[in-house]
Each structure stands twice: as structure tokens, then as C-alpha cells.
Design a protein around this nucleic acid. Structure first.
Lengths: 331, 331
DNA sequence: ATCACCCATGAAAACGCTTACATTCGACCG
DNA sequence: CGGTCGAATGTAAGCGTTTTCATGGGTGAT
């Protein structure tokens, strides 16, 4: 069907070995034969079969990324970061996202086997034994934003705790004491860490104030509802800290509808610094997570693991967050 | 290194053929041997090597996606749509994005060879001869949003023309005549089509009015500058139509800063319906492009091509857009 | 002129899998 | 009881590469 190295060899009247050598730029080929081979290859539009090649070289120049079904912004930024870093190294990207449960994740993982040199894994369904059961022992792995305490694997986490902590400190610095949190979904690792950061900072910086947590699920809708609930409280909080920007935006709408002014009546803060944060009115004070950076660094780290399989790579690295002050908490 | 089918065969005291048969659920294996094989495979944590398998089956269960360096929103939605559709068919996704020029695109294309069953190609650098030179003749392809008049390939385009046309008609229907366009980048196909739709509709619905085009490049910054330019005109337009939402948002900021009210003083419209459109104040009237749909349909179409290689698939399909009326053009 | 050596080239094995074909064995039929 | 058939299993080829090793011819030194 497609033209193979054999066709080129036949046409150029040499062995396949010589074609391979010529095409891969090995030195031990006469200039004359090399030219002939290249000419024939071009004429025939020969293109090497990647899978066949990697079968024997044991390198695929591809890395796999296993991702959960992410909210758009995060997903796109992450992939972009990974892809960018991959590209500078000549690597390609096999992605598998939106898998709902552990079985799907396992299937996706196994399907990548033999097609990738290493994997970036970010999945709520993943734990150490899951990985052990579904991946060969030697496969280089970097875990992204995972609760697994990395005994065996390299991991890269967002400093959600630190970000939330810093935000609360900032709000307290602005004079707020009654600070409510609109939390993320129950079983979400990011959400849990942000909650922990909030609690810890409240204890530290506003020990007398009551920590007040409303449940949300990272959607705009849940932020909106939380905003309405806030307004019905006997004593309204002075500031609201939403565990992500989308919920902050939803909350903002609820406040606006009720005629409550932000930041004059209530301060509002978010988390993530997605583009929307900058476009709402007033622009949102938030915690920036450099997601593309996370992706890029994860890839770099994975490459390090691939390049040096002997070393142990079991540390958890943290990715800093950054406080972005805009107008939603007062100027 | 990793455990192969041979290891399983040895351990289960059968031939590799039987292992293969047992694992792939062929019928001609005794229940007893099958059980033994499965047990051993599990014990050894055997996982088949994807590349080796697809080398002989000539199926990879993977489709490739070649994308330009897209603005985040579009990229993420497209991939999501493709991935979703792929997942329901048990296919995986090999993406390669952010390639800057034709050479990079060519390299990416060739690197996918032998690793995919077909490809989704969306790239400004692609034309018919490029594809001919860089892909084997038989490879199933679907072109996305391409200027190529599809003599050889299946193609799927966004109806940018129709969307822009409809928006201008809408604006005229609201009583506006002097409608300015903030256009997209010079060499961009989407931008060109939207411009064409604008021109065509202006001629049709506001023949006496002067079509007024400001250059932009799809960035917020360029929208902002265009907004400033508009304000300096002797005669201000009654409505501004930005060729994408991000520029509309930039323009909106410029107008706000100058104290010009939207929509009372000037109406403003965008294109794409990215989430931001809904969050700015006032919310943006825009043209919705169901990007995820585009991705999903492209994948479906590609699968059709793959499943029936004999048929000719050279038609261009159009993906409808949808007018979304919010408050930025008056209520 | 002989020999050793080097270098270009070819033959063939290997990568891990699937599958066409060959083989074996027991059962069944005449 | 011999022959035929079918089912289970094994053997080996083949997918498209790369790479090791063998081969052979030319070159320079003796």
C-alpha cells in the first residue's frame, strides 16, 4: 500500500540497510549512493513508518497525557504548556481526557502503552496501586496535582494551600475579618487544599472571626447560588473568597442583581486568574495559577525522568501561585 | 525489560499464538487454557505493546490532529469536541499544535505517520500540494476550516461568512446604518470570510452607508486600539462589529474609558461567543460558533472516511453559526 | 606484488505482536 | 476398525524499521 523502505531500496538498487543509513544521516555511506537514495526517496514520496521505527528503537518521541474532564480554561492552558515544552524538544503529545471513572482511565492508560516514552498523569481516580496495576514498572511517570504522597513517582502540585493562605492574609490586611469561602466540590483535591489554606490562614490572621464555608462545585451556577445565600445571612461577611474564578463571577452576578456593590459593600476574590477574571466588572482580585507553566514544567520533569531512569525521582515539587490584586477587593 | 507475550506464553506453557488468541477473545481456545493464560497474564502484569500490535493489524485506534497555535478558547473547545467523539468510538488522540510555519507542520505531519489511522488537519500553511507532498496518498484526512477547495479531501468549515452576514443584518434591523468592522489579521481565513460576510451584507442591507473597516489581529490589544481610533473619527459609527469577541472586549474597554456608553451611544457586537462574551458588562451580542461541535463532527466525518476508503469524500460541509443577542446592541 | 586494514555495502536478526497454515489428537461415521 | 473431520494448538511468516555482523573490494605500506 504505502511505499516502504524496501521500495526505495529496490528502486535505488541498494539494500534496505543502506537506505536506512542514508536517510538517518549515518556517515558510512558514499556521497553518491546517498544522493541516489535521497532522490529516489523523494520521487517515491517515501515517509518512514513511525510505529515500525519505534518498535525497534524503543523510542517513540511521544509523551502521553492522561487528563480528567477539565473545565476548559485549565485544560487548554495545561495542554498548551505541555505542547509548547514538548515541541521545543521535538516530542509529540498523545492526549486522553474526559474519562469518567477508574476503568476508563485504566483503558486509556493501557492503550498508550508502547506508543509513548513516558506519561503525564492527572486524574482523580489515580492512586499508587492503580498505577502499579495498570502500568509497567519502568515507565517514566510524572503525576500532576495529585494527593498521592510520592513514594515512587515524581509529582508536581499547584500550591493551592499557599495561594489560598496568601489571599486570606491579603484580605485581612485590607481590614476584612468576616471572610466567607465558597468552597469547591467535596472530593476535589484542589478544592480541599484551598479550603485548608483558607482555614489555616483564618486561624492565624483572624483568630476571632468565624470561618464560614459555603459549598460550591466550581461552576458559575453554584457561585451564583452561594452569592444569594450570603445575602440572606443575618450578618453578611465583609469579604467573599471563591475557590475559583468562575464561582466568583457567578457570585458577582448575584451580588449585582441584589444591588450590592463590589467592592464597596462586599469584597470579592477568586482563584485561578482565568481570562474572565480580568474582564468582569469590577476586575477580580485573584490568585494566579500559571497553568501553562505547570504543564511545561511537568513535561520538563518527565523528560528528566526519561533521560535518567536510574535516578530516583520521587519528590513532590510545588508550583507557586501569585496574588493578583485588581479592583474587586477595593483599590 | 517489560513483560511481553513471550513471557506469558512460557509461563503458561503454551505458544504465543494461543496467548494472543486467548487475550483477544478468539473462540478457538479451550476454556481451561484460556483461564490459565489470563491468570498468568494478570500475575505477570502483562500489557500488550500498542505499537507492535498496530504494526501488523494496521490499525492504531488513534487519530491525529494537526492544529495551528490557537487562541485558548478555540483550541480547548475543539479538542474537547474531538476527544469526546473519539472516546465514544474508542479512539485516541495524537495532537500537535503550535507549529509556526509550513516546515514545522510538515515535520509534525510526518511524525504522525504510522501512528494514526487518519488525520484532522487545520493549518493555515496547508494547501493541496503541501498535503500531497507530506502525506501518503491513502491516508484518510479531514480538513478543518481551510481555504482549500476540496477537490481531493473532505472538509469542514465554519460558516464565517453567514455568521457575519447575519450579524450585519441584525444590526441594520436595529436601525444602525453606519456599521464599522474591526477586522482580523490579513492572512487569516476566518478573518477573510467574516470580512467578506460583512461587506456583502452591508452592500445588501445598507447600500448607502460606507463600509468602514479597521484592521485588527484578533487580540484584545488590537481591539482596544481600534476602539480609540473609532472615537477620533469625524463621524462616529452607530455600531461596531468586531470580528471576534476578544477584540470586542478590548474595544469595549476603550469605549468605557472614553465615557462612551454601550449600547446607548454605540452598539457593539463580537464573534465566537467565548465565555468572556457573557461576562463583560454589558454582555456581548455575538455570533456563536459551536466549536466543540465542529470538532465532534470533524471526527465523525473522519471515521466515515476511514471506514469507507473507496468512496470519494471531497465535499465541503459547513457548520452553522447562531446569532446570540445580548445587551451590547440595545435591548 | 603481498598483506593488512578500512570502509561501503549487504544479509539477517531483532523489536512484539497477529494470523495463515501445519500438525496433532480424539471423535465419529460408515 | 480405518478413514475423515474438526477443534485445539503450535510453527512460522510477516508488519517496517534499525543495527550487528559478515563480506568484499580498494588503498597504502612493506
Amino acid at each position: 500500500m504505502a511505499v516502504t523502505i524496501k521500495d526505495v531500496a529496490r528502486e535505488a538498487r541498494v539494500s534496505v540497510a543502506s537506505v536506512s543509513r542514508a536517510l538517518n544521516g549515518h556517515s558510512n555511506v558514499t556521497d553518491e549512493t546517498r544522493r541516489r537514495i535521497l532522490r529516489v526517496a523523494k520521487e517515491l514520496r517515501y515517509m518512514p513508518h513511525g510505529a515500525a521505527r519505534s518498535l525497534i528503537t524503543r523510542r517513540t518521541q511521544t509523551i502521553g497525557a492522561l487528563l480528567p474532564d477539565l473545565h476548559g480554561e485549565f485544560f487548554s492552558e495545561l495542554i498548551r504548556g505541555v505542547d509548547l515544552a514538548a515541541r521545543t524538544r521535538g516530542l509529540h503529545l498523545l492526549v486522553s481526557s474526559s474519562h469518567g471513572d477508574a476503568n476508563e482511565a485504566a483503558a486509556a492508560l493501557r492503550a498508550m502503552l508502547g506508543r509513548v516514552d513516558g506519561m503525564l498523569v492527572m486524574s482523580p481516580h489515580v492512586d499508587a496501586s492503580f498505577l502499579r496495576d495498570n502500568l509497567p514498572a519502568g515507565l517514566p511517570i510524572v503525576l500532576l496535582n495529585t494527593p498521592i504522597t510520592g513514594q515512587r513517582y515524581a509529582a508536581l502540585n499547584i500550591d493551592n494551600f499557599g495561594g489560598a493562605y496568601a489571599m486570606v492574609r491579603h484580605l485581612v490586611g485590607r481590614g476584612h475579618r468576616r471572610i466567607a469561602l465558597i468552597a469547591g466540590p467535596e472530593n476535589n483535591f484542589d478544592a480541599a487544599e484551598r479550603l485548608r489554606g483558607y482555614r489555616s490562614a483564618m486561624e492565624k490572621f483572624a483568630p476571632k472571626a468565624l470561618a464560614q464555608v459555603l459549598r460550591g462545585d466550581f461552576t458559575e451556577e453554584s457561585g451564583y447560588r452561594a452569592g444569594q445565600q450570603l445575602l440572606e445571612l443575618r450578618q453578611r461577611p465583609q469579604a467573599v473568597f471563591a475557590a475559583n474564578d468562575i464561582m466568583a463571577a457567578g457570585c458577582l452576578n448575584a451580588l449585582k442583581e441584589a444591588g450590592v456593590r463590589v467592592p464597596q459593600d462586599i469584597a470579592l476574590a477568586g482563584f485561578d486568574d482565568i481570562p474572565i477574571a480580568h474582564f468582569v466588572t469590577p476586575p477580580l482580585t485573584t490568585v494566579r495559577v500559571r497553568i501553562a507553566d505547570l504543564g511545561a514544567r511537568a513535561l520538563d520533569r518527565l523528560v528528566a525522568v526519561i533521560d535518567d531512569e536510574t535516578a530516583v525521582h520521587n519528590s513532590i515539587q510545588m508550583l507557586d501561585t501569585e496574588l493578583v490584586v485588581r479592583q474587586s477587593c477595593g483599590t
